[in-house]
Design a protein around this nucleic acid. Sequence first.
DNA 1: CTGAAAGCGCTTACAG
DNA 2: CTGAAAGCGCTTACAG
Lengths: 360, 360
Amino acid sequence: MTSLKDIAKKAGVSVCAVSLVLNGKDKNRVSEATAQLIRDTAASLHYEPNMMARTLKTNKSHTLGFVTDEIITTPNAVRIMLGAQEAARKLGYMLITMNTNNDKTLERQGIATLKRYHVDGFLYAFMYHRVVDVPDTLRKLPTVVVDAEDAKCDIPSIYPDEFAIGYDATTRLVRAGCKRIAYFGSEADIIAQTKRLAGYRQALQDGGMRENPDLIVGATEYDNADQRALKLLKEQQPDGVFSFNDVRAASLYMAANQLKLGIGTDISIVSVDNLPNITAVLRPGLTTIELPHYEMGFEAVRQLVAIIEQRNKPQIEPNQPFRSSFETRDILTTAHGSIIERDSAVAVSSPTPEEALKQD
Amino acid sequence: MTSLKDIAKKAGVSVCAVSLVLNGKDKNRVSEATAQLIRDTAASLHYEPNMMARTLKTNKSHTLGFVTDEIITTPNAVRIMLGAQEAARKLGYMLITMNTNNDKTLERQGIATLKRYHVDGFLYAFMYHRVVDVPDTLRKLPTVVVDAEDAKCDIPSIYPDEFAIGYDATTRLVRAGCKRIAYFGSEADIIAQTKRLAGYRQALQDGGMRENPDLIVGATEYDNADQRALKLLKEQQPDGVFSFNDVRAASLYMAANQLKLGIGTDISIVSVDNLPNITAVLRPGLTTIELPHYEMGFEAVRQLVAIIEQRNKPQIEPNQPFRSSFETRDILTTAHGSIIERDSAVAVSSPTPEEALKQD
DNA sequence: CTGAAAGCGCTTACAG
DNA sequence: CTGAAAGCGCTTACAG
């Protein structure tokens, strides 16, 4: 490893001159000739700065701790990490990952270790949207919560706009001409369930339809979803179903097949998640709303770095196109999901109001 | 942040005494009384060592670079990272992750950055088993390849035993009493395809059956798998199929349903991957072989740390039970997959030879 | 415009 | 058994 000293010696200048030049702080401090000499020497020696030494001195490691519960085990939530990583790279930061496996002891130790490594800030991320208690040790440091909301509404939090998801999915069914739109939801008491249902209700109302309690059914992921789906389709004969997620949509597919209902013709289905392995397996293709995981990760790092460097959010563009828009209100940022059109919902030819506007 | 100096001052001893004691190197160097005083003072001050300073001095960062292509986007391959993380934690190392997105420029930059942070070694991981060119910059440093094989057979590599997977899956069908066992494989020229097919052949032979070329069919993941599956089941009427992966198994399910064949009764299916989202959706449950991703990640870190610390492989136990056994021959380590029994293959009552042995 | 010096927090040979 | 000193590679105020 070549050091500043090596460069200084070879170029016949002082170490500090080298430091100044290589950090671009040589304006009016070093003559252009020596500056160039220093740069050339550094290049010829393949100089790489030693971040450890720099951190020791500056107290800035350009490192971010990525603390998660078990995010890593869910295929799509993992995209939070990808987005975070891309934003970090663009801003000159590294991610140190730490999986707590939902174990509070592990979490405490993990955070302590991360601190020893002098991370500049923390991402506190989760595998699905919930309200969380941010540990006190993190409250004092730059921290952004991802795919969750700080219970104390104190730490900046980024999460999907569940209401919009429910509203958009249901509106899609309204626009497909469905008249009996069911909601096939979750029995778990989670944020997504409550808010998506609220979005469904609002969309129904805005579409001039009345809510029918018989068309609102909950199910548990693997236990009873098949039977409930069958019962719903058989007894209530909806012509459209907003499915809480793709796994439940699979149950609806089973039921529809059993009842000889044509999916995308007799009955339209719009779901949430866009899990590649499920959509790969369902025929016809499932129209579903993708959660903005990548976007949330990207945005979270942008915000975190803004906090760390005490400046406005840095202007960086993601390599892959952002499909979601962000809405910031104080410390809470919601992200919109985007609908992935396949064939499980009757096609809509007429443009949406926004599309119509654009075409003018 | 309290430093050694703070402790020294408060305890009225020298900084080096503190360092010695806190690092457990005070044997015959510091009196037990002062040692205890130092430990107490450190605890009361909530001392946490500064890894940056330590690294600067010792040239050991206790940090590992985790470089991947796009591992993060495939649900199960992500478990490599989980396994690596657990092993790292148990051995006192941190993982710095770096996704190259299959971009060589990004990879080069990423590795350079990781070097600036003085990682002690590299994990070079992939989302599926292949032969890879390890960059020259990594060849000079402690490196372990995960879920891939170094083209030059020089860098230690850990990957699944594909032959065993093919052999085990096919043998499972033989033991189910199947007489016409098909292989529904891949058209891609990848290691898994070649070796699983070889395993299939060997298992057939060991089971006293002759190979029938008509029963060996390849397909592309999403393009033609449905038609090929239908054709295979219709024209060849196999009573057992070894499916290259779960996505293809889904095509076999479609075909069987269409032909009114009972899965797990008329036709047995054994697959590979155990992707949660696919198995969640298929009825009846899919019997499939899980790839040992978690185990590979864990084992890779064990090996890497052994190389870094120039000692034998550390004795650490994973929290979650290892389902796989490792077979080491020189720098190549293969890991066995394990079969997850569900209902898509006719049940086998007679014990395997090994099971029979155990019961004695 | 340039250089010498101090110091970040730690470890480790060295001298007593 | 203990302490003083040097130094890892860097940055930054300070003096010229």
